[in-house]
Write a protein that binds this DNA or RNA. Structure first.
Length: 538
DNA sequence: GAAGGAATAT
DNA sequence: TATATTCCTT
């Protein structure tokens, strides 16, 4: 499959300390995927071919068809520079003509030509470069000029290219000083890319200028010199200053909330700068905090307004809901649920008075002797008991659970206990799972989890060790393989049956879960848990 | 000039 | 919608 081309060419390049050191260069490639590697001789292993083949990465295919036929031209006197560019262009799926200028005579440069996707060849001088561009037999769309190229007046070359061809020229440099960039723009560059550059960056820049060049060609408007001034800003924006958009993860947000609370506790001013200090998160800026703080405060405000409007029936804000989607909170819930359900807090084991008992559970988490906070259904039921609110959906026909005990499925009871909300979970011994959690198989079936209005209905099918590979459920008539956790959308009310794997134990087991979910608006546990959760963080 | 915060843009 | 950026004020 792979046409392996391997050449070991020995040549010398200047090392950092200006001592000539022998290096080896290796070329591997197929017609479509040339890869070039450069190694010090000492590091080049004997089984290099094998290693390369094992480590080859599939080229990324770019779905944007407009980019596919672009041909990029670049030249340099340094193999390393071309080598990197080669990889980048290849990943962008561009065609390229990369020219290695052998002006540094005596260093044993070589000629190599990969056609089709990327071409790398040698030329002896800048004159040759300009000649290639003038005739443009290769259908070049855009030129990258590395103005740091040694042994060359690259600015002059760039200017000549600009004058003698219609091609957009992009300056590439490691020097981000405005003076340097301005000089490049004055010499005809339409944009500037600062090294080290990333794939996305070069892609965006190339794309925008090829597009604009085509438009310009149609309008027959030669670019005036005044274009350069505008381009200074463009150059800076399009290449250097492109920042990655920050995503506020649950963890990061928790850290943020914690920082805010610490500051509030210490009756300090809760200002972005201070939050930033307390969070001590590398990469985070004051602007990030400001933006997030704005959102946070708006959410609090909205929540307060809602609370005032609706009294006890606290409706959570979006902020509150989103914050709890997955993550540590659920992990803790899960852990606590296991503890809660494993006898210690069993309804039948202690007080006969369900109200008292549930209160003690809550107190135990408040006074620090018990879990930091309780599972949603415990907490919810306690809330119902205390406030005399009928738990929603307890009598609903829509939610039911039936099961038959199986030796392979421990702890699944067919009757919900008093304290377990039947509406929420038909099985008191069920363990709450993170939605879509990746939970390894282990020896006991332990979950049929919460029909959570936010997440849908999750079935965990971790099984007996006898079924280590997968567990199969039948969904209606079709077989449905479930591995670890599967999330079923809230609109899905199908029944799921456990299917005994073939050639395994003969006992059969049936578990049917029929579940219609209550409306999203009906209740939210998290709003009740919110304060406790937050205080547990500090 | 640096920071906060509301408004606005992406 | 979530996050970034701008703009105005302190």
């Amino acid at each position: 499959m792979w046409k392996l081309e391997l050449a070991r060419l020995e040549y010398k390049i200047l090392s950092d300390n200006s001592v000539m050191q022998p290096k080896k260069v290796a070329f591997i490639g197929s017609e479509k995927s040339p890869y070039i590697f450069l190694f010090p001789s000492s590091l080049l292993p004997n089984n290099m071919e094998e290693i390369f083949l094992e480590n080859l990465i599939d080229p990324q295919i770019d779905d944007d068809h407009t980019l596919k036929e672009l041909t990029v031209f670049a030249f340099n006197t340094q193999v390393l520079s071309l080598q990197y560019l080669c990889a980048v262009l290849h990943n962008c799926n561009y065609k390229g003509l990369l020219l290695l200028l052998s002006s540094s005579a005596g260093l044993g440069f070589f000629f190599l030509y990969f056609d089709l996707n990327l071409a790398v060849k040698s030329a002896s001088s800048a004159v040759e470069v300009i000649e290639i561009l003038r005739t443009n037999k290769h259908g070049i769309d855009i030129v990258l000029v590395d103005v740091d190229t040694a042994d060359l007046n690259a600015f002059k070359v760039m200017e000549t290219i600009g004058l003698e061809t219609n091609l957009p020229v992009i300056m590439v440099t490691a020097d981000s000083n405005l003076e340097n960039i301005t000089k490049g723009l004055a010499h005809g560059a339409v944009d500037c890319i600062i090294k080290p550059f990333e794939m996305e960056q070069i892609k965006n820049t190339i794309q925008s200028h090829v597009a604009s060049n085509k438009t310009r060609g149609q309008n027959l408007n030669p670019l005036p010199g005044s274009n350069a001034r505008m381009a200074v800003k463009d150059a800076c924006c399009s290449s250097k200053l492109k920042k990655k958009r920050l995503a506020w993860s649950r963890e990061l947000d928790a850290k943020f909330v914690k920082a805010v609370q610490i500051l509030e506790k210490g009756s300090e001013n809760v200002h972005p700068k201070r939050i930033l200090d307390v969070m001590n998160e590398p990469g985070l800026t004051r602007a990030h905090i400001s933006s997030h703080l704005q959102k946070y405060r708006l959410a609090l405000k909205k929540r307060k307004a809602d609370t005032n409007k609706q009294g006890l029936e606290v409706q959570p804000t979006d902020y509150c809901l989103k914050k709890r989607e997955v993550g540590n909170f659920n992990a803790d819930r899960r852990r606590l649920a296991v503890q809660s359900f494993n006898g210690v807090m069993s309804p039948s084991s202690s007080s006969p008075d369900p109200k008292k008992q549930s209160q003690s559970l809550v107190y135990s988490c408040i006074d620090g002797h018990g879990p930091e906070f309780q599972t949603p259904d415990f907490y919810y039921n306690n809330h119902c008991l205390e406030t005399n609110i009928q738990p929603h959906n307890v009598e609903s026909e829509h939610v039911s659970g039936t099961t038959t005990l199986s030796p392979y499925f421990n702890g699944v009871d067919s009757k919900p206990s008093i304290l377990s909300s039947a509406a929420v979970c038909p099985f008191p011994n069920a363990v709450f799972l993170e939605p879509e959690a990746n939970i390894a198989f282990h020896s006991h079936f332990d979950a049929i989890s919460v029909p959570n209005p936010l997440y849908g209905f999750t079935i965990d099918c971790s099984t007996d060790v006898r079924y280590p590979s997968s567990t199969v459920f039948a969904r209606n008539s079709e077989t449905y393989a479930v591995q670890n956790g599967t999330t079923i959308s809230t609109s899905d009310t199908s029944s799921y049956h456990y299917v005994e794997p073939e050639n395994e134990v003969s006992e059969t087991y049936n578990s049917q879960i029929e579940c219609s979910l209550f409306e999203e608006e009906s209740f939210d546990w998290y709003s009740l848990l919110d304060d406790q959760y937050l205080s547990s963080l500090t």
